[in-house]
Amino acid sequence: MNIFRLAGDMTHLFSVLVLLLKIHTIKSCAGISLKTQELYAIVFATRYLDIFTNHISPYNTIMKLIFLGSSFSIVWYMRYHKIVRRSYDKDQDTFRHYILILPCLILALLINEKFTFKEVMWTFSLYLEAVAILPQLVLLQRTRNIDNLTGQYVFLLGAYRALYIVNWIYRYFTEDHFVHWITWVCGLVQTLLCADFFYYYFQSWKNNMKLQLPA
């Protein structure tokens, strides 16, 4: 494993921890899109179907368990926890996320590496992950005033995917391993979706001002 992959995994892990911290300690999920969180739960559930059959390393298995456990518990908190759910911006979080699922599924059935159940599900999870941030970005745009933890969450999530791209480039040159073009396209789309947010995030950081997105 190279440093970029590790850094990518760590930013991904931190993004989840930041979110859990916000939910756990402040008992608030204000500014967080439940739609996006539900999509991530689906992403991990469909991607890690091989968790018990395809053993890579203890590291991989543990991380998979963390991502599965955290994504489902975040959804649970936002839906059912009697204090946390009150802070959920339900009226603002109106992106119809199910309309993302069907096109991703059809695309995975048409464009995949191998037409097997596990492989199609894996590809579906890649397509879905690429667009899963959309409801969150729409919610940020609507609420405009973004608290620190929410801003950091989205930033870390974007950084994770950007670092994975560097990791693929690195692996391409150092190992014979090359990532399938499907993965490349999804990773690029996902990172580009966050690029606009990155711009405003760095602006606010540079000027030491509260993060605000333009109307």
Binding site: R5, D9, H12, D50, N54, I56, N60, M63, K64, F67, E113, K114, W122, Y164, N167, D176, H177, F178, V179, H180, T183
Partner: peptide
């Protein structure tokens, strides 16, 4: 050496 996805990433 692989032409495809090793699925060794998260």
């Amino acid at each position: 050496p692989t032409g495809g996805n090793l699925h060794d990433e998260l």
